[in-house]
Design a protein around this nucleic acid. Structure first.
Length: 233
DNA sequence: TTCCAGGCAATAC
DNA sequence: GTATTGCATGGA
């Protein structure tokens, strides 16, 4: 196998198809459902999103809320926030903290995350240009993965996102040592791929999908069909 | 009942 | 510098 990282991408894309991350409530051209119980929408194969500042902001919110939390729960929290703020930054900063907390309860760590959301939103309102990675990392509640998710999906910068699933897969398939750090794993993928925003966006989403199939329960990767294709350890 | 989710900051060593 | 701990919901 000439380039295992490229091979892995092609395999996942063939198997699962375009993932269309990041899902958005604020998707133009789609009517809001009257009942208000709709889901954020994926945009499979359409890499023209996000198109507006409001959509970028919504992605950033989701990136904070989904830290160590299932997306299913995050959707509930985003829906609550939409009900009281329309997911608009100006409304969020004018909303009492107690109301934000109540809305964020389904997304776990609601005391911490309400603070993160609040402080991030104040910063977002002041920030007029494209943020740098260091500027994002300087926000309370924004670490490596969250910063890269924001850059890749909200600000369409070619930053590869490494999450716990990426680590499990990369380690199991022998691409990095189990002692590898965030930047080591990121570098492993980046140096074997051309810097390409759509590919990076799809790759991360595909790894999450694949991990949900084979890397949730221990022993991680046991039944992964890719096991035979990769020389491990 | 137990395990797990699209981490981060604070603290301990 | 690395390792551990607190955070704290809802679904499988």
């Amino acid at each position: 196998m000439h380039n295992p990282i490229r091979y892995l991408y092609d395999y996942l894309h063939d198997r699962y198809g375009p993932q269309g991350w990041w899902p958005l409530f604020h998707a133009p051209g789609q009517k809001r459902q009257a009942r208000g119980d709709d889901e954020p929408r994926y945009h499979h194969g359409d890499f023209s999103y996000p198109r507006t500042r409001l959509q970028r902001f919504e992605i950033c919110l989701g990136a904070i809320l989904t830290q160590n939390t299932s997306w299913r729960n995050v959707v509930d929290a985003l829906r609550n926030l939409r009900r009281i703020t329309y997911l608009q930054p100006k409304r969020i900063v004018d909303t009492p903290r107690s109301s934000l907390i109540t809305a964020i309860v389904p997304a776990r760590y609601y005391n911490q995350k309400s603070r993160y959301v609040c402080e991030f939103t104040h910063w977002f309102l002041r920030q007029k240009k494209q943020p740098t990675r260091d500027e994002l990392l300087a926000r309370i509640g924004v670490g490596n993965e969250t910063a890269d998710s924001m850059l890749l999906y909200a600000f369409t910068q070619p930053e590869f996102v490494v999450d716990a699933y990426t680590r499990r897969i990369a380690v199991f398939l022998g691409q990095v040592r189990d002692t590898a750090r965030y930047d080591d794993i990121k570098q492993c993928f980046r140096e074997r791929l051309k810097a390409d925003v759509p590919v990076f966006q799809e790759y991360h989403a595909l790894l999450v999908e694949h991990a949900k199939q084979y890397y949730v329960r221990k022993p991680w990767g046991e039944n992964d069909p890719l096991r035979e294709k990769f020389c491990r350890r």
